[in-house]
Amino acid sequence: MNGISLYFKLIRISVASQMQYRASFVIMSMGMALVTVIEFGGIWVLFDRFGSLQQWTLAEVGLFYGIIHCSFALSEALGRGFDIFHRYVQRGDFDRLLLRPRSTVLQVLGQELQLMRFGRLAQAMAILIWASWTVGVQWTVLKFAVLLFAIAGGVLLFIGIMIVQATVSFWTIQGLEFMNSFTHGGTYMAQHPLSIFDGWLRNFFLFVIPLGCVNYFPVLFITGKQDIFGTTPLFQALAPLAGAVFLLVSLYVWRFGLSRYQSTGS
């Protein structure tokens, strides 16, 4: 059996397991959705008070918000195994994965598909639809493809961050929270247009953790707004590739961490 179909088999078990605890699933999903509503409410309050953010309206910011939260919700659902990987190391469950003749990345991804994150996904999609309707986006097939591409790029980027975070837990399981500043903090940052930041913060989210590439540039492409950096539409449409590149780099980091783990065994 090839890796892809094995992945779906693993996920089927994970889904079946979660369905054993149906009430908890329903409550957690609703909770997840509610968090997003309240979060966006916070942004709405700010705009209500101050009108606009540089030249950006609330609905335009809603596009950033919707796209990044779609990516984040999907990546948390898919990458759950890496997100809580330190627990597997701590409990020694990771050794069990090493005893199976399959790729470790595939097995960790297959550990869990966290369904309750779809509550947040639904909410993010609702805000995205509202925002695009309010902004009055003229949808074309190409623009829609760029939207999906941006969301996919974001998913790859976030999973990459989770893999790096998981790799750190080969050395230490303490102080992993600082990695959350890249996922949760990065999501918060990416809810806003990159152009409002400047200096090292902007460079960091462009070149180190390229959240701007999976979010800021595609929104410019979709809205046709002028870019203060003066990038071309072609660049804006292809920018989400940065997410895939980040994931590739993180897989190398993972491979290195794995070889270190086997020689320390801590």
Partner: peptide, 19 residues
């Protein structure tokens, strides 16, 4: 080495596919 929340036979079938 078994999946905690599903019937044993599901784990066995998964191991069959893994190996």
């Amino acid at each position: 080495q078994l999946w905690w929340d599903v019937p044993v036979i599901d784990s066995f079938e998964l191991l069959r596919d893994i190996y």
